[in-house]
């Protein structure tokens, strides 16, 4: 089984090649739209949509939701949501072509699936909070910010990786 996985792993692109293509894609994105890529924006739109559907009055009154609610237009109707749908399909397409489609919980042999899922959920919550605070995640603030040499973009990326390295020791059991 290990062997089979190893063969599969080779299918991944060379990271430099992937980086080169992604760099070109970011240039293209800036060239066409004047803005960069993003991912967490779509999740924010989803949250806004759900809250707006469940408790419209509450959404109107909240200073953060109301920023993204427009009269007669769904909050889902944004560039980033469509882009995120594209990302989902892109991942699916590549996975299908490389024979990687498989519903699994990926985790270190040292932890259980359940633990992994709980950690993933916690990580998501923290990441969601952080992405809102920093006004962008690794794609929006990091990749797109760094392409135009935004100070905030570099700062955020440095903080993400810096924190990661600082605390990675305490999480080694989860991963290695």
């Amino acid at each position: 089984m290990k062997n089979k996985q190893k063969i599969k792993r080779r299918v991944y692109w060379n990271p430099y090649f992937g980086g080169f293509l992604l760099g070109l894609l970011i240039i293209l994105t800036f060239y066409i739209t004047g803005r960069g890529l993003g991912a967490s924006g779509a999740m924010k739109s989803t949250v806004v949509t759900v809250v707006d559907a469940v408790a419209p009055a509450h959404a109107e009154n909240n200073a953060y939701y109301s920023k993204f609610i427009k009269e007669g237009e769904s909050p889902m109707n944004t560039w980033l949501v469509f882009e995120a749908i594209g990302v989902l399909f892109g991942g699916f397409l590549s996975g299908a072509m490389a024979n990687r489609l498989k519903p699994i919980v990926e985790h270190s042999p040292k932890i259980t699936s359940k633990k992994r899922l709980i950690y993933a959920l916690t990580g998501g919550v923290l990441f969601g909070l952080g992405a809102q605070l920093a006004r962008g995640c690794t794609s929006g603030a990091g990749l797109s910010g760094m392409a135009v040499l935004s100070t905030g973009g570099f700062l955020t990326v440095a903080m993400i990786f810096g924190t990661g390295y600082l605390i990675s020791y305490f999480f080694r059991k989860n991963w290695i």
Partner: peptide, 19 residues
């Protein structure tokens, strides 16, 4: 940006993904 980055770093270690 700094605090958000720290949170994202934590989330990264917990979850292993970014959005």
């Amino acid at each position: 940006a700094i605090v958000g980055g720290v949170f994202m770093g934590l989330g990264f270690m917990f979850g292993g993904y970014c959005p």
